[in-house]
């Protein structure tokens, strides 16, 4: 498991799905906030793709899978926020190259209190 200890965060279980050049992928992780104050994650970016957005997958009343763009997420104090399959994820839009299993790339997360945090993502 790849993990990062940054300021008052532990970011663990970071991974991305494989993806086709020109297509999309998703990144998952668990952000643990060790601080007594909340922090807000409001942006992410990576050179691997044209755009990164925070999305949430959910099922609507007709049983269809939908995704919605989420502007920000709050990491609760002494708590965690999970980006996991079928729920919240970082959406990598328009990949600039193929993401094959075992490859790694960089991604930056932007928090209101803790600022920019660079992480290493492994494709699984």
């Amino acid at each position: 498991m790849i993990g990062f200890l940054i300021a008052s965060f532990d970011i663990v279980g970071i991974w991305a799905r494989p993806g086709i050049k020109g297509g999309n992928s998703a990144v998952y992780m668990i952000i643990k906030n060790n601080d007594t104050l909340p922090d807000t994650l409001y942006k992410a970016e990576s050179e691997i793709c044209k755009k990164v957005e925070i999305h949430k997958s959910y099922e609507d009343k007709r049983g269809r899978i939908r995704m919605k763009k989420v502007g920000f997420v709050v990491i609760p104090p002494k708590g965690e926020f999970r980006f996991e399959p079928g729920s919240y994820h970082f959406m990598l839009i328009k990949l600039k190259r193929y993401l094959r299993g075992g490859k790694r790339f960089k991604m930056s997360l932007y928090f209101k209190r803790n600022g920019k945090v660079d992480i290493d993502v492994e494709v699984k």
């Binding site: 799905r17 086709i20 297509g23 999309n24 992928s25 998703a26 997958s57 399959p85 079928g86």
Partner: peptide, 10 residues
């Protein structure tokens, strides 16, 4: 659909 990042891969 192959551009689906989250649920279709599942």
């Amino acid at each position: 659909y192959t551009h689906c990042p989250d649920v279709c891969p599942l």
